[in-house]
Structure formats: structure tokens, C-alpha cells
Design a protein around this nucleic acid. Sequence first.
DNA 1: ACCGTTTCCGGTATCGTTTCCGGAAAAATA
DNA 2: TATTTTTCCGGAAACGATACCGGAAACGGT
Lengths: 337, 337
Amino acid sequence: MKHVTIKDVAKQLNVSISSVSRAFNDKYDIKKETKELILKTAEEMGYFPNPIAKKLSQNKTFNIGVVVPEFINEYYSEIIIGIQEVFMAYGYQVLIAQSDENPEIELKNVKTLIHSMVDGLIIAPTMESTNMEYYLKELNNGCPIVFMSRVKENLQASKVLFNNKKWAFFATEHLIRQGYTKIYYLAGSKNLNVSVDRIEGFKRAMNKHKIPKENYKILETGLLAEDGMQIMEDLIYNHDLPDAIFCFNDRVAMGVISKLKSNAIKVPQDIALMGFTETRMVNLMTPKLSSVKQPTFDIGKNAAELLFKQINDSLMEPQTIVLNGELTIRESSVRKL
Amino acid sequence: MKHVTIKDVAKQLNVSISSVSRAFNDKYDIKKETKELILKTAEEMGYFPNPIAKKLSQNKTFNIGVVVPEFINEYYSEIIIGIQEVFMAYGYQVLIAQSDENPEIELKNVKTLIHSMVDGLIIAPTMESTNMEYYLKELNNGCPIVFMSRVKENLQASKVLFNNKKWAFFATEHLIRQGYTKIYYLAGSKNLNVSVDRIEGFKRAMNKHKIPKENYKILETGLLAEDGMQIMEDLIYNHDLPDAIFCFNDRVAMGVISKLKSNAIKVPQDIALMGFTETRMVNLMTPKLSSVKQPTFDIGKNAAELLFKQINDSLMEPQTIVLNGELTIRESSVRKL
DNA sequence: ACCGTTTCCGGTATCGTTTCCGGAAAAATA
DNA sequence: TATTTTTCCGGAAACGATACCGGAAACGGT
């Protein structure tokens, strides 16, 4: 597959390389007719500017890198789609890498992407604190980076966050208002900032409504359905059951539901349930799961726009965007009389 | 962020550019000590070869493109991970594009990727037949392409397929052997080859076991949970219920389960259920869903290896790999006495 | 008729590599 | 010692584009 080059077009028309280049870059310094002629014959010859050469001569790759912890679940997939939408419109390619929730792979991914000369990076770290120093070093070195999701609010960098505190608070308060008084929170992993924030929101709701300490528990779990099943097994075994459970995410909630069902414990009659980071399955479960929806597309879009700005203005001040969600009440958390 | 170039390293050591290049490319024509010296000082100076320049001079991008219908569901996500694993090891970047199940976007994606000079493509078409002529033209033009999943077996190109006929047959036969005699198949969309193949497998099982035609139905549906719900609603409304349902995929099955539950129809006591293209949720559903697991990682890996071969051997004969799956029987399809 | 602008275009350097070619030095052979 | 072979290295030409510079027309105003 021999590619037609700018030279071939120039030779064909007996014009200079420069003219062909100018015709394609839509600049001044070229007569309308020649430009059209050039574009027409180029089209006929099947010529298009070689992006690699363009990248080299302009010292830009028009690539940006995205590093996410995983994209098996819809959450990051949707974020990626949001990012792609924005950057494709700007003529950029988006390189995606997934870290498999492993900070070492994450660091390797970032290094690979930087070595492959991306013009900028969007990173959703697996956990904060592990690789942050390295990323901030690169950032200060002039490599544009935008962070998403799992980073602290006081991080000196541009970032897009979800207001976990607030929405965990709302979700918890909803349970309280339904009349549940013994509420457990399955809190994910304490290594995650989002976890800490949601715990904070949970506690705040408890305090506001003056629920005594002995009436609630915060239990560390993982992020997976299996983790939800595991902890429910323990609780059932210990006869330590609340009347409502707030889960770190929908996957954990699914694990909980499954375990409860197999023990003939009814949701929400015996135990109410609330998820988080809504998935598309909430309506397919029985009972339908109440949950907090995160604006995944918007997280992606905002991160992309932020990065684009940063690429084109190296002096830009770090900017933080905090997005809100949506609490949808479904069957799993509604008190049945 | 000024990059160190090969020239800087050469000047520093008073050697030629060529020598530095040779040191990095591990070729002959260079003394061991000089090579080591060069590599050492390059390391110290923070030099690494500019990939863009390398691409230009070698006329290779070391990028491959992957086009999938979507990656919201685990199926293609897992395939992509398989592809990435292989190609990252070979030092390639993987560019991912998703077509949103839309043939026009798909064509646009492919064109964009070809224009961005990928060394090869892996395509999982949204439906066959729409854009195939274009892809085959590019293939014959010398652009290495491997197809996945939704293409016909007689397509003149390298491809990785799942044996839909066989596994649909097994799944159906299992239902028959459980003693179900009135079995409906919710068949996905007839525009999809996989659909046609699975129908074939379904029919074959019916014929083998001499189930009379009036005892089974093949109903066209979509690919989504909503489609499953819709069709169940119709069937329930028309009092046209079988004693077992085989679903095109797990999502449709989830829709079916959900609709059945809300109508107090029990699975599997009243109606048994079988899914396909197993998702990670099968064990979280009640009842646990029987399904056929596709070897997603292997599909990805095989496609990648096939493409890699094709890239490095332009004369390679088109090769077809047909993979097998795994039928796991769970609660939803086991006859309760 | 002269000159200054504008408009358009070609030549050339540059981006950072790889690769080919040829030559010098070192080693092997006669 | 003379000659051949091998080993190693530098120079220069690609790769395909863009950016800058300056020159040649064309044009209009005095």
C-alpha cells in the first residue's frame, strides 16, 4: 500500500510542495483557484497529509492518554465515551490504558503514554497517594494532566470530582427519613478518597438526625459483589443485622441482595438497601435498587475540556470541577407498611 | 518540556548520531563498550528515542486500531483487554473506537483510523454486510485487517469466531433434556449473523429431538434488557407462554426474569430460562442464570496474534479461528420436581 | 514612468530518526 | 611485511510534512 505524498501531488501539478501544503492548511498566501485545483487533484490521487509527518514537524502528537483503573464496568466506559466525544471533535486520538486496579500497572501505563509523546493525560488513579508524586512532577515539568474521581480536593492540579460527601449524605438521610434507625454502611476501601468522603457524608447525616453511635456501623469492604456477599455472610452468621444497608456501590449491593435472598431475608421489608454509582441494572433487579447516579458522561466531557484548555494554555491555573448526581428512590429503600 | 534528542547525546559524547542510533537498536556494527557508554549517558541525560520520528523513518506507526460496536458491556471490554495484552507486549499502541451499534459511525471510525496510519485493524462490525465491501477493498489494498464475532464464516479474510451454532445447540438440547417441551427462542436481531447461527443451532436441536414445529417459536427481539421485557409483556398479554425460554443474551434474559417476577411467574418452576454470552452477573441473579460463556479474552488474544502475523507477513493466507465456549447450568434451567 | 504594497509562490531548513555507503583502523591471514 | 578481511564508525540521504524567507508578478497611486 504505497502512500501518495505531498511531493507526488506537487509534481503532478507542477507546483511546489509549499503550495500543496498551503492548500491543505487553509492559510493565506494562496490563490483561490490554485487551492481548489490542488485540493481537487489531491482528492483524485487519494492524497491526504501524513499525520506522522505532521506530528513530527509540529512537535505535537494530537494524542491524549487516558488511564483508568478498569473499564469492565460501565462507569469508566461511559466516562471514556465522554472524553472521546470531546477530543475527537478537536481532531485528537484518545489512547486508553487500564490499570486493573493496580498502582504499579498504572504507573507503567502513564510512563508508556508519556514516552509515546501524548500531548496530555487524563488520569483516574486506582488509589490516591501511591503515584501522585510522580504525576505531579510530570505536571510541573509541563505535561498537561487532569485528574478524575479518586483524588483529594486539595490536590494542586486540575481535576473533575463527584461530590461524594453530599450525595452520601442525601442517600443516608433518605434512609433515615424512611424511618430506619439501625443503618450499616458498607464502606468500600479506606484507601480510596471517595470512600472517606462517603463515610463523612454518612456520619454527617447520622449526626444531623442524632442517631446514637451504637445504632450505626461503618464496615470496610471491597468494591465487588463478592465483597458484599462476604460481609453479609458474616453479619448473618453473627446475627448482627441492621434494618437498612447503604452500599459503597451497586455491585456490592447486588452481592448483598443475593446473599439476603438466599437466606430468605426480604428487601426492603426486613432490610432496606441503597446503592451508589448507579449502574444500568438497577431496574432489572428485584427489588429495583435505589441508588445515586453519577454524571459519567459529564465527568468525561469536563475532564476533556479542562485538558484541552490546559494543552493550549500552559499558564492556566489549576481548576477543580465538582459535579452533582441524582438520587433515585426505587423499591429497595421504601418502607412497606 | 524540552526533549533530549539523539543529537544532544551524540554531541555530549562526541560520537555520531548513527552510533547512538545503533546503540539503541541493538544492531551489529558497534563495539560493546561504546554501546554501553552511549546507553549509560543517554539514560543519565533522560534521552529516549522519539517515537514519532521513528515512526516516520520506518514508515510504521506501531499503532493498531480496534473498532467495536460498544464497550459498555463486559463482552467487548474483555476482548479489548485481550487484544491490548498481546499488542502491548509487542510494543504497539492500541487505539479503540466504538461505533455505538451504528454502521455509519463504524465506517467513519475505520476511515479515521486508516487515515491515522494504523499498521492494522481489528474490526467487530455492528452488522455484517453494510460496510464489508469497503473493508475488503482496504484489505486487498494491503491494509491488514482481522474481523471478530459478527461476520460470516465464508468471508475471505482472517477472523476469529465463536461457534454459535454448536453452543446454541447444546444450550437448547440441555433444555430439552430437562424435559421442557414447549421452548421459545428470543432470537436477537436477524440482521446479525450470530443470530442466524444460533437460530440454526436451536432448530437443529429441535429436529434432533423431534420436537414438533408447533411446540417451539423463534421470536425476533433486540439485544437489550428492555427488548426482553417488551416481548415478555406481549407473550403474557396473549397468554402465550412456553415452559422454557432460551435468550439471545444475558441482558435479554434479565429483562425476561424481571418481567416474569413482576407477574408472579416463577423461574424455573413455571418457566425455565437460559442465557447466552455469559456476563458476570449470572451468579448474582435469583435464580442464578444458566448461560453459555464465550471466551472473550481468547477471542481478543487470537485476533491480536492473527493480526500481528498478518502485519509481518503480507502474503499470509486468510485464517479463521473458531473458538468454543462453556455451558454452565445453574438454577434457572433446572427442572424442579 | 516610477515606486511601494499586496498577493502568490518556490526554495530551503527543520523535526528526530533510521539506513545505506564508504572509509579508516584493527585484526587476521599469507 | 604485505595483503586481505573484519570491525567499527561518521557522513549524508531519506521519511513527509510545515514554517520561514525572499523573490516575482500584479496592481494602484502619484
